[in-house]
Design a protein around this nucleic acid. Sequence first.
RNA 1: GCCGGUGUGGUGGAAUGGUAGACACCAGGGACUUAAAAUCCCUUGGCAGCAAUGCCGUGCCGGUUCGAGUCCGGCCACCGGCACCA
Length: 835
Amino acid sequence: MPDMKYDFTAIEKKWQAKWEAEKPYAAVTGGDKPKFYGLIEFPYPSAAGLHVGHPRPFTAMDIITRKKRMEGYNVLFPMGFDAFGLPTENFAIKNHIHPAIVTKQNIENFTRQLKMLGYGFDWDRCIDTTDPQYYKWTQWIFLQLYKHSLAYKTTMPVNWCTSCKCVLANEEVVEGVCERCGSDVVRKEKSQWMLAITKYADRLIDDLDSVDFIERVKTQQRNWIGRSEGTEIDFTATNGEKLTVYTTRCDTLFGVTYMVMSPEHPLLKQWKDQIGNWDEVEKYMAEAARKSDLERTELAKDKTGVRLQGIEGINPANGKKIPIFVSDYVLITYGTGIVMGVPGHDQRDWDFATKFGLPIIEVVEGGDITKEAFTLKDDTGIMVNSGFLNGMTVRDAIPAMKKHVTEEGYGRPKTNYKLRDWVFSRQRYWGEPIPMVSCPKCGWVPVPESELPLVLPQVDNYEPTDDGESPISKMTDWVNTTCPQCGMPAKRETDTMPQWAGSSWYYLRYMDAKNDSAPVSKEAEQYWGPVDWYNGGMEHTTLHLLYSRFWHKFLYDIGVVHTPEPYARRTSHGMILGQNPHYVGNAKTEEEKQALIEKYGAQAQRPAVKMSKSLGNVVNPDDVVKAYGADTMRVYIMFIGDFEKTATWSDEAVKGSKRFLDRCWNLMDLATDDSEISAKNETLIHKTIKKVTSDIDDLKLNTAIAALMSMVNDFYANGLSKGDLKTLMLLLSPFAPHMVEEMWELTGFAAQTGTMAMQQPWPKFDESKTVDSSVEMAVQVLGKLRGTIIVPVDSDQDTVVAAAQQIDKVIRAIDGKQIVKVIHVKNKLVNLIVK
RNA sequence: GCCGGUGUGGUGGAAUGGUAGACACCAGGGACUUAAAAUCCCUUGGCAGCAAUGCCGUGCCGGUUCGAGUCCGGCCACCGGCACCA
């Protein structure tokens, strides 16, 4: 073997060129092989390029799909770009470049970096959501939603980001601020396109049972949808109006001492003339409208409200008259916007009643309602002061009351959801135009499908406007059109679709990326669907992941796809953090330490933090590849820790992965010419194949690499044959594909087999060869480790006990005592119980 | 407040109820070298001891078990999600 250095730069360049030319990763629809569709979330092509967070999921799925190919699967592993969105638009505004040009440059840079890392994507299927040939079908799906009454335009209070000058979906508001820019979100009355995701709420929850998603994704989606089973109860107002409330605790109906209406409730304005203190009420309503979501939440503890003069409510259970208040702790968006106040058994109601001096009635025994509401979590409390419910447990009282109100005709069981319909329009430029035309005579009319794609017009200024209109609205040539229905002058919708539109169906497009007559052909979808394994970030759980499940279910209903769920399996990766430059642990002196704590506070206590430009702890994959090579980058990012957990990048630790690859490379000099697996390494090799195979399937890439490292260490200790090296190369090839192909060629296996290593079958193990002829067993006396013995595999108890009694420490430990019991776990341990 | 998750050496992390710390990083020692880098070898959980060895040790308290990082009950801390959802 020629003594050659591992020149990763030259090697990686060579093999990437070969793969570019020969396309070994191209997926062909159809054939006899079983199919495997592995998917990772496509990136948003930012100007900053890839950061080291990207390669974690990408490398993992690349390894999984490479192994699947070797196992004989027909693999689809695609990549694309989710390129509409605000950062590009803002960059374009700032630098006076068209967003399309920025997007093109960014995609080119991302593509270069992804190819640099050696991923086995089928580049012929690459998609770009801003390509009119792609968004033609995004618009088409919108039109189908419209035709099925799942897209509608309505005026309602929406979340308005004061900085982006744009509406946001509920899912995009985090703790009262915009999830993207962190600015205040206020409520604004606006006419918006909506998608009726709530119609799919039950299916989105129930079908989670049929898919293999990690549990935290399922719980998070269930919580977000927030299904609650309760009761609607009709109260009456003294002016004759019916006031329906929603409650999950209908058992407490006898404990109601007041009612509360949301300040946004439409009945209030209707009652203007009947409300004695209308001025006061109106003022309160105006104040509530001005508050941002954040303010409303922050002030949660301090209840405010105004009592309506001249109108009271009547409790249908006992005919009692009770006051009605207006208060902003009642939300118009949940339930009926009216709540029955049960201060004895709801803490918010208790707070409110205490502040306004309202009576508090105990209807469930067990607490001290003079101190706080008794809101027991278990439901075994006994009902009191509640007419026919007295003496029952809460558990029995709820169904009894539900039945009662239904029979009496003033109530009914009702299911409610926290999930809201999806606000689907944005007042920004860089998004898919919504293909609708507003005609003075016909109302909203869809653009005919034959006219799709409705291409985004060129504008001079992308700047968002303060009047809340899209920049496109200034393009009168484009806006002014004719009604597709009556031919009269009409105007186009100028809002665009949200960031999440294009990604709601992109996994389907990969199956048939060039189709000009459908989003995806029936054949391609039948063959590739559903996605077998989808990995992505937890931050998308209640956004992209939920949205795309919704769209998929709709496409299922209209016969475009053949499965009710898009993704069979969902896993999630942890974030990659950077070193914290301000960490107190780095301080050398006590003064330095104090200075850091003073300056950075809690931030200084954390060894690792999110990478950011301002902290200067961003790791650029380009630099890592330049210094150590793509294969080292791939191995390190997998070896860094448990895939699902947060991990911290370490420049020092990368070297360990490089060292490992060097050691693999240098094994070429040591391997003897024997092309068979050597007898001395046989067990080791079969064990390692077994371990690496199952670890990849279980997404435990870190321990798979550890097993390979162990094998290499043993090869150095015991020597190896070319046959042994061959197995190592095959097991390593998904992890470090460039280096392995070069080794495969240098060791003559390329010439001998006529294929690349990646095209070889995945090594098989023989279960019977994964066990050694002898094993080391633990010897315990009274559960305490006293030594180890080496015995033939599967030795019986007598043999093991006899061997154990030869050990000095064991002899001493049982000295003068009787062995009364022996616990013998075959090949593992023997525990001598003495007295 | 509710729902998840996590807690193991100086560090990242391993451990189907069965030898805690695999595999690495850092550190220390040695070899090679004019020297450095690279490479190779050794040590490396803590305490006591020259050593053999002994004791302690997986956030805390208790329980089940021959045996608990792992299972059960109760705490504490941190991370993530939701949150005036009636």
